[in-house]
């Protein structure tokens, strides 16, 4: 079975990279948070991004979301530089993310948070909204339908109308994933989705990430400290340490890499 799976991917023609990070450097008053980072992610792959605490993984996500400015280097998505794209333009390109320390809209319900994830999918402007035209109502109905499907998928239907702030951390992390998926992204950035959930839930999460990748034909960039999760579902793993890439390859290659072993042992 597993062989049958690997044959088409070997037979497939070489695809161009969806995401290309080239020589990206980020400096915070003397601290090199990212140091000449380069790697690329192929379309349809799950790419794990690992590294000890403070390695620069979240900083890289914030560069991809255009929340941080990189001092040098370039990031290309579908071959187009993110340089001129403002942070609110990233969603329209098809990139959605979750936040490590949760950035849910605290006054909203779970459903409202997920609906907000689809913001960039609708286009109605001020005049249409002031009059609540048929277009607005049609957009809202579509968003509502899609959001409810995502709540179902992420097992959140029970808590749809609860305030996000009242839910346990692990559940809030799932709301973050649902909200990101509501954009119908082509690339999903997940920052430590397994943080704060138990062993069984990690197994479920692994299945979920694979499933959404296949069903929604996503490319996934996954930051995670949970090594067995990363190694089991990733097609490619990139390891960072002190802001620099120390390994980039298949999970097996990266696990064997002496620099990676040293970084984790030294950090502990």
């Amino acid at each position: 079975m597993t062989d049958a799976r690997s044959i088409p991917s070997q037979a497939a023609p070489p695809r161009s990279a969806l995401l290309e990070v080239e020589h990206v450097t980020v400096r915070f008053s003397g601290l090199l948070a990212l140091n000449d980072v380069s790697f690329s992610v192929q379309e349809g792959q799950i790419c794990g991004l690992i590294g000890p605490n403070g390695a620069g993984k979240t900083t890289l996500f914030n560069c991809l979301s255009r929340h941080y400015h990189y001092t040098s280097g370039d990031i290309r998505y579908r071959g187009r530089s993110l340089g001129p794209v403002p942070s609110h333009g990233i969603a329209r390109l098809g990139m959605a993310r979750s936040f490590q320390n949760l950035a849910l809209f605290g006054s909203m319900s779970v459903l409202e948070n997920v609906r907000m994830g689809a913001f960039a999918r609708a286009r109605s402007g001020y005049l249409q909204n002031l009059f609540r035209t048929a277009t607005v109502r049609a957009e809202e109905a579509a968003t509502q339908r899609k959001s409810q499907e995502l709540l179902e998928l992420l097992d959140l239907t029970q808590v749809a109308h609860e305030n996000v702030g009242d839910l346990p951390f692990g559940t809030q992390k799932r709301v973050e994933i649902a909200r990101a998926l509501a954009l119908e992204p082509t690339m999903l950035l997940l920052d430590e989705p397994a943080c704060g959930i138990n062993h069984e839930e990690v197994t479920e999460l692994a299945g979920l990430i694979r499933r959404v990748r296949d069903e929604f034909s996503l490319t996934v960039l996954l930051v995670e400290h949970h090594m067995s999760l990363v190694m089991s579902i990733s097609d490619q793993v990139v390891a960072l340490n002190f802001g620099a890439v120390i390994a980039d390859g298949t999970p097996a290659q990266v696990q064997r890499n002496p620099d990676v072993i040293r970084a984790y042992l030294g950090g502990a």
Binding site: M108, F119, G125, Y126, T143
Partner: peptide, 22 residues
């Protein structure tokens, strides 16, 4: 509507709102 929700999203979490395309 979506604009009102965006207004609230900006109040709650401006960085996340921007990531949603606001």
């Amino acid at each position: 509507g979506r604009i009102g929700q965006a207004m609230i999203a900006i109040r709650d979490q401006p960085a996340a709102a921007a990531s949603m395309g606001v």
